[in-house]
Design a protein around this nucleic acid. Structure first.
Length: 504
RNA sequence: GUCCCCUUCGUCUAGAGGCCUAGGACACCGGGUUUUCAUCCCGGCAACGGGGGUUCGAAACCCCCAGGGGACGCCA
């Protein structure tokens, strides 16, 4: 029997997501329970969106949770490198095989043509996908286009008829007609592989035996299986976990919920409680025990106990659990140490002190002034936002625009934030002090406080986002209609690139 | 629109045909302890989406419907 090897393969394109931790947890438990290995691979084939910072954040977040791995970009391993951007030669070599066997072909279609095609197919209510246009190109035509240096991609061929039938470890037989499957791009015009290709190649070369991933991948499994078949490789066992959900049951998203692991750390949750909570999403201990350690979960793990309904990630129960951990697991000394470590990080304190010093007359002034640096959500209501020039709607809009602006920032220094706010004030033709007013209330709970720009920089995006969103809800929330109008206006101000607002 | 997945209290879930008068936990409500509050303890509220089968017997198995979700990118 083949050794069990599982992996988590995050893409470093944003904040470390609780969904990543969730899938990592189950992969890790499964591997360890079978005496196998759990590895970490960074899928950074998207040159534009990937960043080193994001990769580091993800690694740190998973480490914080205690979800350690035995091979990865930080520690190496037998199948190094573990970063896809460093494995290009492998993909180039492998794609050649598919090109030679005619299982893949070069496609010179323009983005415009593909867009038109999609629109047309949408109108005809048919399956959306590539029409095989470039399949008709002769070998000479292809050679000519290549010698002329024409940009192109490489796509995989898909059977024209029949079904792809495969077995999901939890769901049993799944059958998808090949006609539903698109001729997936394997190599992008920048020469880098897409997820589908790199993922299969790496899973094979890294001897991954079980692919435990989110339900969102079910529909692309046929492509992956077909690649294994084309290569003549033995495919892994697939297992699709349910997706974590927002309260409204949609897929967990940043817009509706705090999804960043950093948020939970910054809000003062214990990593053990967060892991425990993730473990009870779709899974239970055989004896029904609700509070359990990672070690206990690993020891009693049984993948077949996963229930398939998408669990709502509802922090109420996490709050209760975290309180239980604090009360039952920490003695006074541990509590004091952990709290101090959480609250008084030297670099954080060093940045807060100068802000306080110029505003206090006695030490007794410190706590009330600085409390919001160590708090979660401020205690505010709509009256707090009353302002001679700004209506509630104005404030909502300003807060939403600032949030969008902050989310697009690369750096999070005070100067980055200041520039963003000044820029926004100018495009909105608002005085900066008026623009900042609702922000002061949202962040500090008061209209008078330490510099809100510095404060935001110290608090970080995760907490800032939560407070701004809370303030917006206190101000009555943004209706769907209003959201659309805001988005449109924000885009027209030239403050956003197309996808940034809607992406999770 | 096409395809795929899913469906037990508001939420997380137990349930592998009779142990189910459907159990536990969170939340909520009530009571007790506590100088207040919280903790803690006790109690209560509350669900098998609908319709057909199969069976002596169905929350569980099958079919249909409905609802929810996901996928349909030179993102992953």
């Amino acid at each position: 029997m083949q050794k069990v090897r599982t992996r988590i393969a995050p893409s470093p394109t944003g904040d470390p997501h609780v969904g990543t931790a969730y899938i990592a947890l189950f992969n890790r438990c499964f591997a360890q329970q079978h005496g196998g290995e759990f590895i970490l691979r960074i899928e950074d084939t998207d040159q534009v969106r990937s960043s080193a910072k994001s990769e580091q954040d993800i690694l740190n977040a998973l480490k914080w949770l205690g979800l350690s791995w035995s091979e990865g970009p930080d520690i190496g391993g037998e199948f190094a490198p573990y970063r896809q951007s460093e494995r290009s030669a492998l993909y180039s070599a492998e794609i050649l095989k598919l090109l030679e066997s005619q299982h893949a072909f070069r496609c010179f279609c323009t983005a415009e043509r593909l867009q038109d095609l999609r629109v047309k197919q949408m109108g005809e209510k048919s399956t959306i996908g590539y029409d095989g246009h470039c399949l008709q190109l002769s070998a000479e035509e292809v050679a000519n286009k290549i010698s002329r240096g024409e940009e192109h991609v490489i796509r995989m061929r898909i059977p024209e008829a029949g079904d792809c039938v495969f077995n999901d470890l939890l769901r049993g037989e799944i059958r998808i007609a090949w006609q539903q499957i698109d001729m997936q791009i394997l190599i992008k015009s920048d020469g880098l592989p897409t997820y589908h290709f790199a993922n299969v190649v790496d899973d094979h070369h890294m001897r991954i035996s079980h692919v435990i991933r989110g339900e969102e991948w079910i529909n692309s499994t046929p492509k992956h299986l077909l690649l294994y078949q084309y290569f003549g490789w033995e495919p892994p066992v697939y297992c699709h976990m349910p997706l974590l959900r927002n309260t409204d049951k949609s897929k967990l998203s940043k817009r509706k919920n705090p999804t960043s692991i950093g948020y939970y750390r910054d809000m003062g949750y214990l990593p053990e409680a967060v892991v425990n909570y993730l473990g009870m999403m779709g899974w239970t201990m055989p004896d029904g025990q609700e509070k359990f350690t990672l070690k206990e979960m690993t020891a009693s793990f049984d993948l077949s106990r996963v229930s398939l309904g998408g669990p709502v990630f509802d922090v109420t129960k996490l709050d209760w659990l975290n309180g239980k951990y604090i009360r039952e697991n920490l003695n006074d000394e541990q509590f004091a140490n952990l709290f101090a470590e959480w609250a008084f990080k030297p670099e954080k304190v060093a940045r807060i002190i100068p802000l306080l010093k110029e505003r206090v007359e006695r030490f007794t002034d410190v706590a009330p002034l600085a409390a919001f640096f160590f708090a979660g959500l401020p205690e505010i209501d709509a009256t707090r936002f009353e302002h001679k020039k700004l209506s509630q709607e104005d404030s909502r809009k300003i807060l939403q625009f600032i949030l969008w602006q902050l989310e697009q920032l690369r750096g999070f220094d005070r100067d980055d934030i200041e520039a963003a706010c000044l820029g926004l004030a100018e495009t909105l033709n608002t005085k900066i002090r008026d623009l900042l007013f609702p922000l002061f209330v949202a962040i500090s709970g008061k209209s008078t406080s330490t510099s809100v720009i510095d404060s935001i920089s110290i608090l970080g995006l995760d907490i800032t986002r939560a407070r701004i969103r809370y303030a917006i809800s206190v101000l009555g929330g943004i209706s769907n209609k209003e959201a659309k109008a805001f988005e449109k206006e924000f885009r027209e101000l030239g403050q956003a690139s197309d996808k940034q607002l809607t992406n999770d």
